[in-house]
Each structure stands twice: as C-alpha cells, then as structure tokens.
Design a protein around this nucleic acid. Structure first.
Length: 484
RNA sequence: GGCCCCGUGGUCAAGAGGCCUAAGACAUCGCCCUUUCACGGCGGUAACUCGGGUUCGAAUCCCGACGGGGUCACCA
C-alpha cells in the first residue's frame, strides 16, 4: 500500500519550529517510502483566522525543500485540502454516528457548561460532560431542532473498560475509558472540531501514517473509537516528542525563539536549521551529523525516533550554522553577507570582497557581523591596557617605540596593497631587530582599538586605506604619549 | 488533582543482559598553529535519578519512589 503522510497545520501566521520538524518527518517518511506527502490546512477555528497565514506555511515548506504532492494550491484527488472548504462534508458523517448511537445532539450552551466546569473545579473535581443531552428523548431533540435551538454534536464515549493502541514511537498504550470526555464533533457554527475533522479527513485522504505532536497521545483513543464506529481502518500512529526550550518549557513565541522566521531573520541558514532540527528527537544510528535533504530521506527511519523530549540547543544550531556558512561557495557568502556589512558600514566604501574573505570563517550567525566590522567605520574608544600583552612582549612603552618605528614606514608606502604593506613593514621590522609580535600587536590595536579583529594589522590597514590608517595611528600615538 | 508519557554528562545522543573501565557531537577547559581573533590539530573535565528486586552478571528486565513533560475546550 502506498504510504501517505500529511502535515496539517492551522494557519496562525507563523511556523513554529516544532511544526517544521513535524512537517520534515512527515516529508522524509513519505519520500523514503516513495509515498505522498500531503498538505492540509486546518482552519476550522474561524475566530483565529489570520490573513496571509497559509502563505507563511507554503513559503516555509518550499524554502526548506519540502514540496508537497497534494495540497490546497496544488490540488489532488482528495481535495479540497482546506478544512473550511470541506465544511459540508462533515455533518453527514456526524449524523451517521448519531444513527449508530455513537454520537448525539447536545443543546447545553457554552455558558452553562462553563458554569458547571467552574463549579466542578471549585469542588476540586475534574469536569466531564455528564451526557445530560444523551438522555433527551427523540421527540425532545426533534422539537429543539425544529425550534432552531443551537446545538453541537457530541461523541458518545464509553465510561467503562479501557482502550489500547500501538504507537510506532511509544509502543503499546493503554487508557482507562472513564477519563474520556464526550468531545464535541460539530460546533454550533456547523464547523467540525479538529478532533472530528482530523479523523474524517485522514480517512478520506487515505492517510496511512499519522505523525503529529505527542499532545495528541491521550486523545487518540477517542479518534480510534470514531474510526471503529465508521468501520474504518485505523492509521499507523507516530507521535513525536515535544521540542523544548529548556527542561521545563517548550519553545514558545514568548521567547521570540520559536518561529522559523525568527531564526532566518537572525541570519541562520535554512539548511542548517533543517539539519539540526532533524537531529532533535531523531538520529541516523551512526555518527553522521551533516545531511542534505536527500541524505535525510535516505537515512530516515521511524524506529530511530526518540521518545524523550529534546531540548532545542541554540549553541549546537549555531555551530551547525557556522559550519554551513564556512562551506558556502565564496560568491554566495559574499552575496549573503553584503546586507549585513551595509548595516554597519553604510555609506563608506570598503573592499567587501576582501572583508568577506576575512569574515567567512568567523561568521557564526549573520546578525553578529555588523558588530564585528563596525570598528572599520568608527574607531572604538579603547584602554591603553590593550597594549599589554605578555605573549607578544608588548606594553604601552614598547608600543610607543614600535609605532614610532612603523609610522614613517607606512607613510612611505605608495602602493597600498595588502601584500606590499605586509612586505614593507615586515622588512622594516626585521631590520630593526624587533619581534614581529611586539610591533604588529600594537599596530593592530592602534588602528582598530580592539583586542580581537577579523584579520591582523595588515589586513586592517589595507581595508582602512592609507589615509585612515595614518590618521588612527597618529591619534593612537598621541593618546599613548598623553596617557602613558 | 485524575489519566498518560518520559528519565544516560550542561545539551543532543549511541546503548536493546556480559563487547561499558559507557561511543560520538555541541558547549566548556587546556595545549599547539598564528601578528589578535576565528579556522584547524591534539588532549582534559563531565552521565546511567534513587531504592528495591530478577540474574552468575543490569544503563539495559520488573516494582516502587522521586523528578520532568503532556492532557483533561464549541483551540488545534
């Protein structure tokens, strides 16, 4: 039988990383088995409708390389793929259930239920719908319906015994039936609830493997009752663990670190994000860590899905990102880093190509770039203490001598190329008998004002240009004789 | 609180009774390379939640405790 998986997000306007991972596993499993990956939009909550939200879903999935085989914008043999467009479909199924005695009309209002729920909570009890409306006679129900009384349709759950099912990740699961609540299938507005639509659609769309977050673990017995009531085959369940921010919280929008776009905006590469995400809760069984999408497809195996929640480690993601950035073809890196250079260096002319060469191995996340290059346009205030470096055998006094030595040398350089600056200054140092570090360290400090910079004294002098280099050198020498 | 799930270093994890004196990666620390930093190379610190069983033998199986998470909506 052909494998058919689905990703069924509700359009909230953002793609949660946990959702991206769920989509990814669904995609990988389908592709691995030469099956179909279906995209279905679950928008049965009309109050939560967000303009443009489906585009966010499309764009994210496509950007990551998870092209779906069937979906709202693509069609397919099982459409429509947007639940709100499927609305007329659901009621007849609910009515079938009523005829079978597996569901019933309920006329209790939301307000009444809220009151009863509050009362139950006040008594320290768990609220469970008491099947009040199940006891209504056929005539009473008929009368209320004819009178146009608003209603919902509830599922009639057993209150005794237990339910079991098998999950590919969690194994054999057992739940006592007395904790099952008669969930609403059809809402007052005629829309199905997720709980209902999900079952109907998964069946109608021929979904063979349901991979979703483990928050559905305990409501799955109810879904199974629905499948059974209809006489439908129950799909394979693959419940995925939660992606956590730390041991106590899942990734949430409040941290500003939960959405795909948060990370892309910060300058994380989607390839790095996908690669890392795949590894939170899954592993290939060997020591491989780097995967292209095709390699993930090849390596993916449900059996290697973990059943303990995983913490999303930004440090590791950042490492992945830095690795991916280093592997970028230079031209691509240059293109990507340019806007980040612009952020700090706006207006001034620098040799971006050379700067990029120096920066590529030092870039972990693009949003850290501006702070790393800003010193080129604005000489930082710095402390004379920076001239103290034991290993370089330098201190403010040594620095003063070194800078005095190097200044006329720099002034005399006509061809301000990096190579020429290097050769000329190195020759002068050799002639003076000084140690390289004793000259080069102070020089770099004098023209950068920073303890660490992307590149050494020559690279920075070159980037700055002769005029600015000498200007900084002079001002640093002044500072040195004034304060030292 | 009821029910359910989970429990190997700070993090991701390998491990499916002897191969474990517990792999690998990130982070961290140290050394080397080097005109700084980064890259790269080498090395170190660091874990089976606890308590009972079962067994000749347990990180692996069972029970309990503890800890964490999930779920109890006309949200998905």
């Amino acid at each position: 039988m052909e494998v058919r998986t689905r990703f069924a997000p509700s359009p909230t306007g953002f793609m949660h990383l946990g959702g991206v991972r769920t989509a990814l596993y669904n995609y990988l499993y389908a592709k691995k088995n030469h099956g179909k990956f279906i995209l279905r939009i679950e928008d049965t909550d009309q109050e939560r409708y967000v303009e443009g939200a489906t585009d966010v879903i499309y764009d994210t999935l496509r950007a990551c390389g998870m092209e779906w085989d069937e979906g709202p914008d693509k069609g397919g043999d099982y459409g429509p793929y947007v639940q709100s467009e499927r609305k007329p479909l659901y009621l007849p199924y609910a009515k079938q259930l009523i005829e079978k005695g597996a569901a019933y009309y309920c006329f209790c209002t939301k307000e009444e239920l809220d009151e009863r729920r509050a009362a139950a909570e006040a008594r320290g009890e768990v609220f469970k719908y008491d099947k009040h409306c199940l006891n209504l006679s056929k005539e009473e129900v008929q009368a209320k319906l004819e009178a146009g009384t608003p209603y919902v349709i509830r599922m009639n759950c057993p209150t005794t015994g237990e339910s079991t099912y098998d999950d590919e990740v969690f194994g054999h699961l057992t739940f006592p039936n007395d904790t099952l609540d008669d969930m609403v299938l059809i809402k007052t507005d005629g829309m199905p609830t997720y709980n209902f639509a999900n079952v109907i659609d998964d069946h109608l769309m021929g979904i063979t493997h349901v991979m979703r977050g483990m928050e559905y673990l305990s409501s799955t017995p109810k879904y199974n009752m629905l499948y059974n009531a209809f006489g439908w085959e129950i799909p394979q369940y693959v419940h995925l663990t939660t992606v956590m921010r730390d041991a106590h919280h899942k990734l949430s929008k409040r941290d500003g670190d939960a959405y795909y776009s948060d990370f892309i905006d910060k300058g994380y590469l989607k390839e790095a994000l996908i690669n890392y995400l795949a590894l939170v809760g899954w592993n290939p069984g060997d020591d491989r860590e780097f995967f292209t999408m095709d390699e993930l497809i090849e390596a993916f195996d449900i059996k290697r899905l973990n059943n303990a929640p995983g913490i999303f480690d930004t440090d590791k993601l950042t490492w992945f990102n830095a690795e991916y950035i280093r592997k970028l073809p230079f031209d691509e890196y240059l293109k990507m880093v340019t806007p980040w250079f612009d952020k700090a260096l706006a207006g001034k002319q620098f040799d971006y190509k050379r700067l990029a060469e120096l920066m590529q191995s030092r870039t972990e996340v693009f949003n850290r770039v501006p702070d790393m290059v800003r010193f080129l346009v604005e000489m930082p205030e710095y402390d004379l203490d920076l001239y103290n470096n034991k290993k370089m055998k330098t201190n403010p006094d040594v620095a003063k001598e070194s800078l005095t030595l190097v200044k006329p040398v720099l002034e005399g350089i006509e061809d301000w190329s990096e190579a020429n600056i290097h050769d000329t200054v190195m020759a002068a140092i050799a002639e003076s008998g000084k140690k390289n570090g004793a000259v080069l360290w102070p020089l770099r400090i004098a023209i950068s004002g920073l303890a660490s910079t992307p590149g050494g004294a020559f690279e920075i002098a070159y980037l700055l240009g002769k005029e600015e280099t000498l200007r900084r050198l002079n001002s640093s020498m002044e500072k040195l004789s004034k304060d030292a």
